[in-house]
Design a protein around this nucleic acid. Structure first.
Lengths: 198, 198, 198, 198
DNA sequence: GATGAATGAGGCTTCATTCAT
DNA sequence: AATGAATGAAGCCTCATTCAT
């Protein structure tokens, strides 16, 4: 391994650590209340060095968004191995409910980020947040379409909206049980949706 | 009108203007990105004078929350004049949809405030935001209970959650139509709920 | 009693209350940490009204100084009724020790005021503080001179200096006993000073 | 000298400069009338940069106190090289008198700081000021004890109290001679104290 | 004379970003 | 690439003083 390779590897590692730290800390504290120093510390990187990897704070937010997108991609990839689209959707609900404690404390990472970023038009971060939200919508819509249901796009909005809504309420009221109970309702709803007529 | 009445009126007026300005600006820009100067300007009050009415920025946020609570109280008071609880709920949905443009730009005032305030434990503003959210939940629960439905509390969570979810998605995607379409679905869902068995 | 008399009486009363409040609050909190509002509140006078009686904060400080001077004048007038100058000095020490708790908390009113005012050349308040300090020095010197002792001025400096020193130490260490113990020493010292040679 | 050494040296140097500036400016102007900007300017440091070294103004005050404590430690270390405790005490008086001009203008640094800090209970700075005062008391007590005198603690209080008192009077009256004359008296008093009985 | 309200300067502190090495 | 230190623009808040009745 040459010096430059090792350096590149170490550099890439730092970058990855910064992204992960940004994703977590920004989720927990929100964008405005999080300082670059917070993220640097969480990543174990000296403050001054952050700017070598990310030119501005906005780029770190962007990185956090893409990190969340990555997590979602991993999850959907795994769920896509299930043969039945309905089972996939139900497994998604299960995944949400399993993270109920985090949701009840900090809300849905993507959703809360979107809420905060929507309040500023400049920088285009709001658009990027919308893009990540849409990833989940698109995946959901795909499942509903595979089920042969009409208005799959609306069903996806209802599905994801329910998740965002229960996360918001769970965190506003600090009650993880809201995730469990509303998750169960969501599952029942999925079951109640008729398959494509034969 | 006596002198003191006039003075008091002016003072109270300014206070009210500050509350209204705080409610609006904080909704549009978020808590952290809004400066006292922003609110002062929106209310037409010199910055230094704000502190005569509100000792801290947090008190202004609190005032905004109570302003939103007031708006909600007005709305529910009006809806309560309808004889049928189901009609009340449907009218609530209509009210939400009618404000679709604001929702698609800035989200639900109470919901987005709650999201932002939940990220800071200090000050108790998070609890206060939860309290306002609960006002709507309680009103909704009351309607479901009047309809004689079981699990009125869960139904309320579903109902309000759907609203929060569609608001979030509408604003994340900047599509007011999401409010209309999901509003229609919500109305249909309300219609589908059976009355109390005779 | 005419209206104007009553008004003047009420006005004079307010003025007196403000002076007393200024003397107390400025002693307890120091000049810089005391706001006009603090003094107004302590006096039970609306803030805006203070300026009718005192044009600036400095004038209030001046008033406090003269209040303290008044207290001292009262005390010395009383002590002067004692026939023996040594007895007068010893009674003065007793008076100091009797106020040991206040001294241990806030120091000597005049002394601490002088310390704070000496740090600013402008306004002449420092000079005024010195004048009040000198009142006590002059009285003491008179006693020593009546005792027929040489260097009465130096003895007065030693006497008053001892008082200022023990007050400072008592308050810095928060130990009222320092006043008692050093007061006893001071009394013994007074006793040890020979009378004028016959 | 390596790069990091140089950087560290520069950083440490700035810190030291800030401490020295804080000690001096706070002594001359008092805590409340001194702004961070004053200290920064005296140290030749940009205001914003001060916060890299001291997180709050209180920390700067603390630093000033420890600076004064350092000065005292240096002085006593030097005096401790004298074989005779009485000579040490007399040399201490000489040191005080030699700084009579500063004392007559701004008082004893530690004493005046203690006076001001005692007026605020919060932050614990008052306690810290007391601690520094006690350093001098403890050293003095040690000398009196070495002389074999009874009540060394009371003698120390008298000794240090006399110093604080004369400093206060000298600065209140703006007369450096007070330091000289009372210093001479203090020296004579030290001479008059009997040694331990053989 | 009395009083609540208004004003504006100034102080403390934070932090994104840049610099020097 | 790495890093401690530097910079300066805000932002929040306080308060002496003044104003308008």
């Amino acid at each position: 391994m040459t010096d430059s390779t090792r350096t590149r590897a170490r550099g890439a590692d730092k970058r990855r650590r910064l992204m992960a730290a940004a994703a977590q800390v920004l989720h927990e504290q929100g964008v405005e209340r999080t300082t670059i120093a917070d993220i640097a510390e969480a990543a174990g990187v000296p403050v001054g060095n952050v700017y070598y990897y990310f030119k501005t704070k906005d780029e770190l937010v962007l990185a956090a968004l893409s990190e969340h997108a990555g997590h979602l991609a991993e999850l959907t990839a795994e769920l896509d191995r299930l043969p039945d689209p309905r089972a996939r959707l139900k497994a998604m609900v299960e995944a949400w409910v399993s993270r109920r404690d985090v949701a009840a404390r900090y809300g849905c990472p993507t959703g809360t980020l979107a809420v905060e970023l929507d309040k500023r038009a400049e920088g285009g971060l709001d658009v990027e947040a919308g893009r990540v939200v849409r990833l989940l919508l698109d995946w959901s819509e795909r499942q509903f379409r595979e089920l042969g249901l009409p208005d799959a796009d609306d069903l996806a909005l209802t599905f994801v909206g329910a998740y965002q809504g229960m996360s918001l309420l769970a965190s506003a009221l600090r009650e993880p049980e809201i995730m469990s109970r509303q998750g169960a309702r969501l599952t029942r709803w999925l079951d109640s949706l008729g398959d494509a007529p034969a």
